[in-house]
Amino acid sequence: MKLGRSLLLALALAPLTLPSAAMAADINMVLNWVPTADHAPYFYAKSQGWYADKGIELTIESGRGSGAAAQRVAAGASSIGVADMSTALLAKGKGANTVAVMSVYANTPQGFYWLKSSGINGPEDFPGHSIGNPPADASRVMWPLFAKTVGIDPESVKFVNITPQAKIASLKSNVIDITSDFYNEHDLKLREFGDDLGYVAWRNIGVNPYGNAVIVNPDFLANNKQMVADFVAITQKAFAACVENVDPCLDAIMKDVTGLDRDNQKDQWERIKELMRDDTTTTVALGAFSPERMASDYELVETYFSLEQPFDINDTYTNEFLATDVLMTK
């Protein structure tokens, strides 16, 4: 039986008129930890349909540390992730290949907390004490660098495995003497411990590598360059929107994530903006990496850690997908 010309034309055009949802790609994004304020822009962009508009069906998964996130992305279990940049560089030195496409923390958020009533006055008093954090915590991975910088033996402390949620309770109950945490949680500890809180920020002792960054699997990037470009453009736009007004962003994350205190998350976001701000993000692009700083970070990890597989630092990051008219506020 012969088909009419109109039917043949309809069949020929059918692939061009499929719903956009049919062309959507499922993308799994693994976070460095459980979702908090620094992850709000991803939830906000998703809630606004910005990723879906570009054919990206984004699934956001909680993580178990930057080291675990870097390994997961390198293995292709997640196409995209969030990880501490120095931790990602160390992982690459062991063969876990990732590419950073956007900086989140231009300044390291790493810090150590303790109670002054414990007799600890500063890092020089850390030897003989316990530090509680998760096994894949970036500060545990980078501990030898911190120890050498402040002049103590890296083997002089005992690490205790605790969950991120147990840090304050463990410190308060003296289960641990010291804990590591990101600066964005600073206000929560101030409210809990007041004047008894001791704190040292890595960036204040001259150790300021890049912190969290958005990383991608290099094979996924090579095969899906436009999709990665769209993802980065949307994410950069979302961060800029949240810097301008964080309230809708907090609405979005709190709708999807239980157990978050809004006031605490808002305090966190104010600290996060400090961490996002440097000369590069305010003049080149929000989320941009400085080649000079990245070279310095490579020298740092090469000097203090044994890289099984040395690499070209220029292969570990790109500013290619960032819009230069989207800047971090000064």
Rank of each mutant, 00 (worst) to 15 (best):
G4T: 14
A10M: 02
A10G: 03
L13S: 01
L13D: 00
T17L: 15
L18F: 08
A24S: 12
I27A: 03
L31Y: 03
L31I: 11
T36P: 00
H39C: 08
K46L: 14
E57I: 00
I60S: 01
G65E: 11
A75M: 02
G93Q: 12
T98Y: 03
V99C: 07
V104P: 00
W114L: 13
S117T: 14
S118C: 05
F126N: 02
F126R: 00
F126L: 05
A136H: 12
S139Q: 14
W143C: 04
G151H: 08
P154C: 07
E155L: 06
S156H: 10
K158P: 02
P164T: 13
S173W: 11
I178K: 05
D181Y: 10
Y183H: 06
K189R: 13
L190F: 02
E192I: 01
D195K: 09
D196R: 07
W202I: 06
N204T: 13
P209I: 05
P209E: 07
N212H: 11
N212E: 14
V216C: 01
N217F: 11
N223W: 07
K225I: 14
K225M: 12
M227R: 09
A229G: 11
F231L: 09
V232R: 03
A240L: 02
D256H: 08
V257P: 05
G259R: 11
D261T: 10
R262F: 13
L275Q: 10
M276F: 10
D278K: 06
D278S: 05
G287Q: 05
L300N: 01
V301E: 03
T324N: 13
D325P: 01
K330S: 11
